[in-house]
C-alpha cells in the first residue's frame, strides 16, 4: 500500500503535478464558501472561461501563461463592473456578455495557433505539465489568496450578510466584492492547470456546497471545504496515474461523489432529528 502511494512521487514532474493540484484546490476551497453563499457561481464560471484568450495570447507571444491569464481576468472583471454600473443591465447579463465573448475569442485564437492536444490541456487540465517556475507562482498566488481571506474574514462576513451595515461602519461592499472577484480570478488561473477552464467551477462550488450540507457555521464550512477539496485532488491524482484517467475529470468526479455522500448524510440526519421531534 505504502509503495503504491509512494511510487508515482519518485518522478519529480509527477510530484510537481501533485503539489500544483494541492495548491489550486487549497486556494479554491478557501474561497468556495463565499462563492457559494454570496451567489457568485455564475461570476466565478465566467471569470474562469474569460481567461482563455489571455492564455492563448501568452502562448502565441511566448510569455508566461499566468500573466496572460491574469490580464484577461482583470479585463473581464473590469468589463463586468463597467457594464453593470450603469444599472441599465443586470449584472448577470453583463457577466454573460463578457463571458461568452471572451471565451469565443479564446477558442478562435486557439484554433489558429495550437493543436488539438493543447486545446484539450487548456480546457480540461494537464496536471503533469507543470514546471518549476509555474509551481513557484502558483504557491505565491495560493498564499496570497488564503492570507487575504484570513485578514479580511470579518469584512467578508459583514459585507456578505448586510451591505447597509457595512457602509454604516465605513466599509465598501463594492470594494470587497471586486476584491473577492479578483481573488476568484487568481485562483482560477492556478486551477486551470489541474482541472482546466471548463471544470474550474467544480473546485469553486462543490466543496462548499457539500460542506454546507453538513454545517451551518462559516468557519466549519471553509475547513470542511478544504478537506474535501484536498482529498479529491489527491484521489483524482492517483486515479489519473494508475488508471490513466484525465486528472481534471477524476478530481471533479471525486468531489461530486463527496457531495452525494454529504447529501445522504444530511437527509439521514434530518430524518433522525424529525423522528426525535
Amino acid at each position: 500500500m505504502v509503495e503504491w502511494l509512494i511510487e508515482p512521487l519518485t518522478y519529480s514532474f509527477i510530484l510537481r503535478g501533485l503539489a500544483a493540484g494541492i495548491l489550486a484546490s487549497l486556494a479554491c476551497a478557501t474561497l468556495s464558501a463565499f462563492v457559494v453563499w454570496r451567489g457568485m457561481a455564475f461570476a466565478g464560471d465566467a471569470v474562469a472561461h474569460s481567461i482563455l484568450p489571455g492564455i492563448v495570447i501568452a502562448y502565441m507571444f511566448g510569455f508566461s501563461m499566468f500573466i496572460g491569464a491574469i490580464g484577461a481576468a482583470a479585463a473581464a472583471v473590469a468589463g463586468i463592473g463597467i457594464i453593470s454600473r450603469r444599472r441599465e443591465l443586470q449584472e448577470d447579463t453583463a457577466i454573460g456578455v463578457m463571458f461568452a465573448g471572451l471565451f469565443a475569442l479564446g477558442i478562435l485564437l486557439l484554433s489558429r495557433v495550437a493543436a488539438f492536444q493543447d486545446l484539450n490541456h487548456i480546457l480540461f487540465g494537464n496536471i503533469l505539465g507543470v514546471n518549476q517556475s509555474d509551481l513557484i507562482i502558483m504557491a505565491l498566488i495560493a498564499a496570497v489568496v488564503v492570507l487575504l481571506v484570513l485578514l479580511f474574514y470579518k469584512e467578508l462576513l459583514v459585507t456578505s450578510f448586510d451591505p447597509a451595515h457595512s457602509v454604516a461602519i465605513g466599509l465598501s461592499p463594492e470594494l470587497i466584492r471586486y476584491g473577492l472577484l479578483g481573488a476568484v480570478a487568481l485562483t482560477t488561473v492556478i486551477a486551470v492547470q489541474s482541472v482546466g477552464v471548463v471544470l474550474v467551477l467544480a473546485l469553486l462550488i462543490t466543496p462548499a456546497a457539500a460542506a454546507s450540507l453538513l454545517s451551518k457555521k462559516l468557519s466549519k464550512i471553509i475547513i470542511l471545504s478544504i478537506i474535501f477539496s484536498l482529498f479529491s485532488t489527491i484521489a483524482g491524482f492517483y486515479g489519473s496515474y494508475y488508471m490513466d484517467l484525465s486528472s481534471g475529470p477524476a478530481i471533479v468526479i471525486t468531489l461530486t461523489l463527496l457531495f452525494v455522500v454529504s447529501w445522504i448524510i444530511a437527509v439521514i440526519r434530518n430524518r433522525i432529528q424529525a423522528g426525535k421531534g
Binding site: L157, D162, A164, S212, S215, K216, L218
Partner: peptide
C-alpha cells in the same frame, strides 16, 4: 436588504 441565509 439582508441575506438571512448566509451562514452566520
Amino acid at each position: 436588504a439582508v441575506d438571512w441565509r448566509f451562514p452566520v
